[in-house]
Computed example of a mutant assay.
Amino acid sequence: MGVGALSELAVGYRGADELATVSDLDAGDHVVATLTDAFPTRETFLREGF
């Protein structure tokens, strides 16, 4: 996982399941589920790009 994908996950811009789908996250299902619980997606108001 690159710093851009990690940043998107941390602020809730994209979820772990989406990152895994587009190959930005290479992890097993249990890891994706744990990350989804730890970093839920939410509406973000960032104008900066990742």
Rank of each mutant, 00 (worst) to 15 (best):
M1K: 02
G2M: 06
V3G: 08
G4M: 09
A5M: 08
A5Y: 02
A5W: 01
L6C: 05
S7N: 14
S7P: 01
S7K: 15
S7W: 11
A10Q: 15
A10E: 13
V11Y: 13
V11S: 13
G12A: 07
Y13H: 11
G15H: 08
G15K: 14
A16H: 05
D17T: 06
D17G: 13
D17E: 14
E18W: 14
E18K: 06
E18P: 04
L19E: 04
L19F: 04
L19D: 07
L19R: 07
L19Y: 00
A20V: 00
A20M: 03
A20F: 11
A20E: 05
T21Y: 03
V22P: 01
V22T: 05
V22D: 11
V22K: 02
V22H: 07
V22G: 05
S23M: 02
S23C: 00
D24V: 07
D24A: 07
L25Q: 14
D26I: 13
D26A: 05
A27K: 04
G28L: 08
G28N: 00
H30I: 10
H30S: 13
H30V: 08
V31Q: 05
V31C: 07
V31K: 09
T34N: 08
T34R: 15
T36D: 01
D37E: 12
D37I: 06
A38P: 06
F39H: 12
F45C: 08
R47L: 15
F50W: 14
